[in-house]
Structure formats: C-alpha cells, structure tokens
C-alpha cells in the first residue's frame, strides 16, 4: 500500500498517511469547495489501510497528529467520519493514539477537541495545548 500525501493548499489541509511508520497527519485549514470530494479519497484510503491493520495489528500504535487552525462545518462532519473509523478499529484491538494539537489561547480548537474526545473509548485521544503557533 502506498503512502497518501496531499500538500497543504489555501483551503485544504496537508494530509499524510504513512503506512510504513503508521503515522497519520492532518495540518492547516480546511474549508474546501467540496468537502465530500476532498475527504472521499482520504476515507477510502483509510478504510483500506485500517482493513489491513485489523487482522495483523502493527507492533507500535497507529498515531494520528491533528494540527488544525480552522475547519468549516462540512469538514467537521468529515473529521467525525475519520475518527469513527479509527475508534471502530481500536475497538477491534488495534492500538491507536490521536493527538489533537491546538494553541493554548485558541478556544475554538480546544472546544472542538473536547467535543471529539467524547466519542472515543478505545482510541487514546490526547488534547495537546501548545505555546507556539501551529501555523
């Protein structure tokens, strides 16, 4: 399986899903013209990757680092879909960490992190307040 890499644009985040290191990253701002078209291939890739991990979990946990500055409501829905896939995979016995990074003064991203954290039981979801700007 190949690595997925989408560079950051004005309106869409950097997305990197590395099958070798089992690290996933999403960084930047997300309000693409068509959220379904942007996130569709990412979800498809994730389904294929997580499908491989279920029968033979990797030796080290899968780690996802989220560093978002802003996302619109359609992107929030898409993120929820990503997280639901991770949670169901973790429930099947794969170790997964999600690190939600935000600047400590950023009330919006902190609240979103708290909101998403409520949906996780098997994934370890970590709120990571940072003193430095994420951009």
């Amino acid at each position: 399986m190949d690595r997925l890499y989408l560079p950051r644009t004005d309106r869409s985040p950097l997305v990197e899903l590395d099958v070798d290191s089992h690290r996933l990253r999403i960084e930047g701002e997300s309000y693409p013209e068509d959220a379904a078209a942007f996130f569709g291939p990412i979800l498809a890739w994730l389904d294929a990757y997580l499908g491989q991990c279920r029968p033979t979990p990797p030796d080290s946990p899968i780690v996802m680092d989220v560093r978002l500055l802003y996302f619109n409501s359609s992107s929030a829905k898409a993120l929820m879909n990503v997280f639901q896939r991770l949670e169901s995979t973790a429930r099947a016995g794969v170790e997964i960490d999600v690190n939600w990074h935000y600047h400590l003064d950023d009330e919006t991203m902190m609240e979103f992190g708290e909101d998403f954290s409520e949906d996780f039981e098997s994934v370890r979801f970590n709120l990571c307040a940072s003193e430095t700007e994420l951009a």
Partner: peptide, 25 residues
C-alpha cells in the same frame, strides 16, 4: 454545543449538504 455534537454524529442525508450543522455553527 450539545446539539452540534449530536448533529455531528448523524449520518449526512443525501439532500442536505450540511446545512443544518452550518446553521448550528
């Protein structure tokens, strides 16, 4: 806030491209 969280979990309807969650936002 809790209404937003509920809507976030609901599967999107075909006819609705996220309007209701946009209004809640």
């Amino acid at each position: 806030r809790s209404h937003y969280r509920e809507k976030l979990r609901e599967p999107a309807e075909e006819s609705d491209r996220g309007a209701s969650i946009g209004l809640i936002e």
